[in-house]
Structure formats: structure tokens, C-alpha cells
């Protein structure tokens, strides 16, 4: 009887420790370099095994104020510029994403699944779309408009998914019918009843698509030609050209941004969105 349970089998004895080991190694692999980057950004040298010369803010000053060497720019101007571009993308995403999410969540129509696939699967990744933009809108690339419309297409799926998850938790038909029977026209129902009810999803979607647009590198790298570099290009310039610890500080600025966004999402209480970002 006892051998039927095979308590002595290899997987019973070593299975759980093995799975836990994989988990621990994965956590180390993903989190350790992030911590090291942040810590070393306050160090003055890193020649040996560990960074030394704590605590200095010189690296952060170089990043935030700028070193003034060559065409180097401070993070401030890049951050402001990227914020603006990404906000432009978010505005477009709101205009296109909320309606299509509602159409898919509320109505049943021919080709609905395909509309959904197009709305939530990215059509082409950044680099491919970048090549296409370079060919099609060569004059726009210097003004940032190309970046805005590119960002909005690349990040639209995240907006649609976040808003959809909000819509799915609402009884849309009932809400719509109540408002209609009380005399509201359909556009008014949509704008003043449906949209405010999906507030959580809309805010979460905006934050996510904003962050991802600000972080988009591949598309920006191909399309960007001159002027203030977007944040991702700024990071790239720091990683490839600046000293190692300056690069660590620049990457840490980005980490702080993501941390702020994660906290913001947690405050709104959209747990699904937190996982997705």
C-alpha cells in the first residue's frame, strides 16, 4: 500500500526544492542588476568587485544638470520632451482606444473578433514601423509629430486592453438602457455615463501607454533625427557614450519613473494593469 504513494520518488523529494531554486534564481537574475545599478549610481568608482566611494551625488548631477561636454544634454529637457510626446500619444490613444474597446465589449457584430485582434495585437513592432515612417513621412520626423502618431499606434493595444477590462466588469447593456430610458441621447449616454464609469481603466491605460511610449526606443531610434532626444535616446547615449556610473544614474532616473508609475497604478487599484506594465 505504501509503495503506491511512492513517497520516495525523486520528484517527491526534489521537485519542490528544484522549482523553488528556479524561482529564486529568476528573482536574483531579474532584480539584482536593478539594485546594483541603483546602488552604484551613488558610488564614485567601480573598478573592483564592488563599487566604492559612497555616497556621492556626482553621477546624478551629471545626469540631471548635464556635463556640458559636447552635445550632451541634461535629463530634464529629454524628460520634458518625452513627457510631451508621450502625452500626445496618450491623447490620441484615448480618442481611438476608448470607443473601440466599448464597441467590442458592448456590441455583437460581424467581424468583432477580427476587430478585437487588430485592436489588441500590435500591427508591427517599433523598428519595422520606424522604417515605414522614415520612407513615408520623412519631413515629419524632425518635428516630433511622427513620433507622436507612431507612439499612439504602437501603444494603443495597452489602452484598449486596460479599458476593456474596466468595461467587462460593468453591466454595459443595463447602464446604457437605464440612461437611454431616462431620456439621454446615445452620444450623451456614452460620454457622460459610460466613460466616467470606466474611469479606473481609462486612467490605468493612460498611465501604461504613457510610460511605454516614453520608454519606446526602437521606433524613436530609427525615426528621431535631430533636436532634443527623447528619453529612450537619452538613455542610449548615456549607456553607449557616458562613463559607466553616469549611465547607471541615467538608468536609475528611468527606474524611479517606473516605480512612480507602479505606485500610481497601485493607488488607482488596478491590479491587473500593475502586472501588465
Amino acid at each position: 500500500m505504501s509503495e503506491r504513494f511512492q513517497q520516495g520518488s525523486l520528484s517527491a523529494r526534489y521537485g519542490r526544492p528544484f522549482v523553488k531554486l528556479v524561482l529564486a534564481l529568476t528573482l536574483f537574475f531579474l532584480a539584482f542588476p536593478v539594485v546594483m545599478t541603483f546602488v552604484s549610481s551613488f558610488a564614485s568608482d567601480w573598478f573592483g568587485v564592488f563599487p566604492t566611494g559612497f555616497v556621492t551625488t556626482a553621477n546624478w548631477e551629471d545626469v540631471i544638470v548635464g556635463t556640458g561636454v559636447g552635445a550632451d544634454v541634461a535629463v530634464g529637457s529629454s524628460l520634458v520632451y518625452s513627457t510631451g510626446l508621450a502625452l500626445g500619444g496618450v491623447v490620441i490613444n484615448l480618442i481611438v482606444g476608448v470607443p473601440i474597446a466599448y464597441a467590442v465589449a458592448r456590441y455583437d457584430f460581424w467581424g468583432r473578433d477580427w476587430v478585437n485582434v487588430f485592436a489588441i495585437l500590435p500591427l508591427a513592432p517599433g523598428i519595422i514601423l520606424g522604417v515605414a515612417f522614415l520612407r513615408t513621412y520623412p519631413d515629419l520626423s524632425t518635428s516630433g509629430i511622427a513620433l507622436i502618431i507612431g507612439y499612439s499606434l504602437l501603444k494603443a493595444p495597452y489602452m484598449v486592453m486596460a479599458v476593456q477590462s474596466s468595461f467587462q466588469s460593468m453591466d454595459l447593456q443595463q447602464i446604457e438602457e437605464s440612461a437611454r430610458s431616462l431620456g439621454a441621447s446615445w452620444p450623451r449616454t456614452f460620454l457622460t455615463v459610460i466613460v466616467p464609469n470606466a474611469k479606473t481603466g481609462i486612467i490605468a491605460g493612460s498611465i501604461i501607454s504613457w510610460t511605454l511610449a516614453a520608454a519606446e526606443f526602437n521606433f524613436s531610434y530609427i525615426v528621431y533625427s535631430r533636436g532634443t532626444p527623447p528619453l529612450a535616446i537619452f538613455l542610449f547615449n548615456n549607456i553607449t557614450n557616458a562613463s559607466f556610473l553616469n549611465a547607471a544614474a541615467a538608468v536609475s532616473v528611468f527606474f524611479l519613473l517606473i516605480a512612480l508609475v507602479t505606485i500610481a497604478l497601485q493607488i488607482i487599484g488596478n491590479r491587473g494593469a500593475v502586472r501588465r506594465i
Binding site: 529568476t26 542588476p33 536593478v34 519606446e216 526606443f217 529612450a232 549607456i239 549611465a247 538608468v251 517606473i258
Partner: peptide, 22 residues
């Protein structure tokens, strides 16, 4: 969970920098 989902929002260049750190 936060640690495991954090890299999802990092662009590829930052992932490359993490590998340089390691």
C-alpha cells in the same frame, strides 16, 4: 510579483545594461 513584472516596462537598451552589470 512586482519584481517579476518590473522588466516588462524596461526597454531593450536597459535590459542590455542589466546584462553589462551582471
Amino acid at each position: 510579483l512586482t519584481v517579476l513584472s518590473f522588466p516588462n516596462s524596461l526597454p531593450g537598451i536597459v535590459a542590455a545594461f542589466m546584462i553589462i552589470i551582471l
